[in-house]
C-alpha cells in the first residue's frame, strides 16, 4: 500500500538529497517536504516522519516539538532523524547537545555500528559523512541510564555518538549524513528503516 511520509525541512540544504534517497528506495511512497513553520502538516495524515538536518540547535526547529508531542508520540508514528533530527530526539529526551571539540564538515569518518535497526546486516564498520558542529554531550552509559534511547553507532576513533534508537517506540536517528554521496550503504539503511517501521 502506498504511504505518505512527511519530511520536515529545517531550512536545510540537504533535504532534497534525503528526499531523493528515500524516493529511490521506495518509489511507490510519497515524500512531501514541509518546512518546520508550515502548520498545514497538522491537517494531514502521515505514515512516518523524517526530520531533516538543519542549522542551529534542536530548540530552533519551529513547530517540530509541537508536532512531535501532538502527533508523533500519541500515534507512535515512525521517525527517522538526521543530524539536527537526531539532536532533536536526544534533546527532547533530556540530553545536552553542545559544541563538539571534534566538529567536522564534509569529512568522512569510520563508524562502528551495532547489527540492529537500520544497520542490520551491514557489517560492523561503515564510512559515513559528517557535517556537524554540535554533538550529544553524554556517554553511552548516560544515554542508556537516563533516557529511553539506546546508542547504535559510534565514531570509531573518537567515540562520538553517531546513531540512536528508541528502546520501545519506532524512532531511529543518525548524526551522520546518509544522504551524502560519500556515505556507504545508505540505501540499505533506508531499506531497513522502511522494513522495520513503515512497510505493511
Amino acid at each position: 500500500m502506498s504511504k505518505s511520509i512527511l519530511i520536515m525541512d529545517n531550512y536545510d540544504s540537504f533535504t532534497d538529497n534525503l528526499r531523493h534517497l528515500l524516493m529511490k528506495v521506495r518509489p511507490e511512497y510519497s515524500f512531501p517536504v514541509h518546512r518546520n513553520t508550515d502548520r498545514s502538516v497538522f491537517d494531514e495524515k502521515w505514515d512516518g516522519l523524517v526530520i531533516s538536518p538543519g542549522p542551529k540547535s534542536p530548540a530552533d526547529t519551529g513547530i517540530l516539538k509541537e508536532f512531535f508531542e501532538k502527533i508523533v508520540l500519541p500515534e507512535k508514528m515512525p521517525v527517522l532523524g538526521v543530524c539536527l533530527g537526531m539532536q532533536f530526539l536526544a534533546w527532547y529526551y533530556g540530553l545536552a547537545v553542545s559544541p563538539a571539540d571534534d566538529a567536522r564538515h564534509g569529512r568522512t569518518v569510520e563508524l562502528t555500528v551495532e547489527d540492529t535497526g537500520i544497520f542490520k546486516g551491514l557489517g560492523s564498520t561503515l564510512k559515513a559523512m559528517r557535517y556537524n558542529s554540535l554533538a550529544i554531550d553524554a556517554t553511552v552509559q548516560e544515554v542508556e541510564d537516563r533516557t529511553a534511547l539506546t546508542v547504535t553507532a559510534l565514531q570509531s576513533d573518537s567515540g562520538m555518538i553517531m546513531a540512536l534508537k528508541h528502546k520501545k517506540l519506532p524512532f531511529s536517528a543518525v548524526q551522520f549524513h546518509p544522504e551524502s554521496f560519500l556515505t556507504e550503504k545508505a540505501e540499505s539503511m533506508m531499506e531497513n528503516f522502511f522494513m522495520d517501521y513503515i512497510d505493511d
Binding site: 540544504s13 538529497n17 531523493h20 524516493m23 564534509g106 569529512r107 544522504e179
Partner: peptide
C-alpha cells in the same frame, strides 16, 4: 580541499535534485 569540495558537491546535488528526476 576535499572536505570543501565534498560540501559544495552535496549542496549542488541537493539543488539539482530540486529539478531532477529522483535517482
Amino acid at each position: 580541499n576535499r572536505a570543501e569540495l565534498a560540501m559544495i558537491v552535496d549542496l549542488l546535488r541537493n539543488d539539482l535534485s530540486r529539478v531532477c528526476r529522483p535517482g
